[in-house]
Simulated scan of single mutants.
Amino acid sequence: MGKPDFPHSILEFQARFVDVRACLDYLFACRWPDGFACPRCHGTAVWPLATRRTGECTTCHHQTSLTAGTVLHKTHTPLLQWFWAAYLMSTATPGISALQLQRQLGLGRYETAWTMLHKLRRAMVAPGRSLLTGEVEVDECEVGGPEAGRKGGRSNIAAAAKVAVAVEVRGKGSGRVRMQIIHDASAETLEAFVMANVATGSVVHTDGWMGYARPPKKGYDHRPRSQRAAKREGNPEPIMPRVHRAISNFKSWLRGTHRSVSAEHLQVYLDEFTFRYNRRASPMVSFQRLLGLESHHEPTTLRQIISEGPSAAKRNLN
């Protein structure tokens, strides 16, 4: 049979998920696309219990939760609101802020919307995602801190943080992107970023920063080039336009959608931008991934989210 598909329009979403029963049926079909199979005895018959979030095998009486292993695990928020949150987050081109989600879903507490979005963001990163290949542009930038053209003060996007960025070259366009907070722009740190995100045998383009002076290990074709040298050679075109475009788009997206974020949670916003950027041609296929129906890692708890930034929920819930 295979897993059910995902809604391709808001009208299809409304028609398919009219109540909690429809959400539960969808979860059941995603979890057991070929019919129920008890994880203990492999029995094929199940009794629904309570609100049908849990099923009991008729043979061995083992109980299995429909939401276990997904972002919906042990949630007290109605499933229909979760489905709407995943749909809005996956289909809205610029994403959605916690305040917007609270208004759209009629949630009583801002913190509920904030928690839902953070749980959805943590379902975006696939543990075994493939490395970037071919030709890859690599650069680093600073998110927050002084900005060109800004009269005094500091950017309110986030506390200053260094971010490494890699983008695949696909003709004149861009392929996939990877973004990661780094402690510094030293040769060791940048080399580790390249090795963790770019497949060996790839061509790695960088600028003339001394942190790239030591070529990456394990068979990379490193081709550094400075903008100043390019101009001396009579080439006024900017070097590495794809990675610079990705950095600019990320900063514009962060300002436009989220206004400000706490430094403690900046990485998950980098992950969200990466997720959107890499699926920009087919955003609706992200619906199942966000609900955790295609993930292979444990869902994140609120305690884990808060522990990543102890003061985030009090100081800057956005």
Rank of each mutant, 00 (worst) to 15 (best):
A158M: 06
A159P: 00
A159M: 06
A159V: 07
A160V: 06
A161W: 00
V163S: 02
A164S: 10
A166D: 08
V167Q: 05
E168C: 04
R170H: 11
G171K: 09
G171H: 08
G171M: 08
K172G: 10
S174G: 00
S174H: 06
S174Q: 11
R176C: 08
R176Q: 13
V177P: 00
V177D: 01
V177Y: 02
V177I: 14
V177N: 02
M179Q: 08
M179D: 05
Q180E: 15
I182N: 08
H183W: 00
H183P: 03
D184M: 11
S186R: 15
A187R: 11
A187V: 07
T189E: 12
L190F: 08
L190H: 05
E191T: 15
V194R: 00
N197I: 07
A199P: 04
A199I: 05
A199Q: 14
G201Q: 11
S202M: 04
V203K: 11
V204Q: 03
H205A: 07
T206Y: 00
T206V: 03
T206D: 03
D207F: 04
D207L: 05
G208Y: 01
G208R: 02
M210D: 09
M210S: 14
Y212F: 15
Y212R: 04
P215I: 03
P216N: 07
G219H: 03
G219C: 00
G219R: 00
G219S: 03
Y220C: 02
Y220S: 02
H222M: 01
R223K: 14
R223Y: 03
R223M: 06
P224Q: 04
R225Q: 14
R225V: 05
S226C: 06
S226P: 01
Q227W: 06
R228L: 13
A230P: 01
K231L: 15
R232N: 14
R232V: 09
E233T: 01
G234I: 09
N235T: 13
N235F: 10
E237A: 15
P238H: 13
I239D: 03
I239M: 09
R242K: 15
R242L: 13
V243H: 05
H244E: 07
H244I: 04
R245T: 14
A246W: 00
S248I: 01
N249Q: 13
K251M: 09
K251H: 09
S252D: 14
S252L: 11
L254W: 01
L254A: 11
R255I: 03
G256P: 00
T257M: 10
T257L: 09
T257P: 08
H258Y: 15
S260T: 15
S260N: 12
S260A: 14
S260G: 13
S262H: 15
A263L: 12
A263E: 10
E264G: 11
E264T: 12
H265V: 12
H265A: 07
Q267V: 05
Y269E: 07
E272L: 10
